[in-house]
């Protein structure tokens, strides 16, 4: 009987471990690809980003629907989808990675923890290793994941034609901000 109890409690523990996952379906990713000196801002944001974090092993994944990026100018949005990221062919960008220093983050305890995230970003059909420094903020059971990093458009086969090179930079500054809820 003791054996059963032990095994059951083991099961229970694994079940609790699964409660250490956090997720959102309305995280924000914004980017800024404005060339220096450009008269127009090339910025957009997506407020329907899916993000799941597994606190037990540090696995972290994002999914961003490309057509959900909204721009100030409708025509920019159309060109973004049609000419740059080709949203019909490549409808979403996915990041799958891991928080390498997950052992130093206590998801159960309030605080702000620096985090290093490493993984693979798939964008415009191209998969590339990326690494970024970010922050995990825990406050009253809510977990917020933030990160800022740069992406070179040329790394992902996204070409900026020379006629708009004075407006659109090859470097996109990406900002991630996801407020996460426990995944039940």
């Amino acid at each position: 009987m003791k054996k059963y109890l032990f095994l059951f409690s083991l099961l229970a523990i694994t079940a609790t471990a699964s409660a250490q996952k956090y997720f959102t379906k309305n995280g924000t990713i914004s980017f800024d690809a404005t060339a220096s000196g450009s008269p127009e801002n090339i910025t957009a944001d997506n407020r329907t980003v899916t993000c799941v974090v597994d606190g037990s092993n540090g696995n972290i994944q994002f999914k961003s629907t490309m057509k959900a990026f909204t721009f100030e100018r409708a025509l920019m949005q159309e060109h973004f989808n049609e000419n740059y990221v080709e949203s019909d062919k490549y409808p979403e960008a996915v990041f799958k990675g891991v928080i390498t220093n997950v052992s130093t983050i206590s998801f159960g305890k309030d605080g702000s923890y620096p985090a290093t995230v490493k993984g693979k970003l798939t964008l415009h059909g191209v998969e590339k290793e990326v690494e970024s420094a970010g922050t995990i903020i825990v406050a009253k059971g809510k977990v917020t994941a933030k990160a800022n990093f740069n992406v070179l458009l040329s790394d992902y086969n996204i070409k900026v034609p020379s006629v708009v090179a004075d407006k659109v930079s090859n470097t996109a500054k990406i900002a991630v901000n996801c407020g996460l809820e426990p995944l039940k």
Partner: peptide
């Protein structure tokens, strides 16, 4: 137990939501 932990270890977190 092994199966549950294997489930957890698999890398498709996005599929969970």
């Amino acid at each position: 137990i092994l199966f549950t932990s294997w489930l957890h270890a698999q890398d498709d977190l996005l599929g969970l939501v």
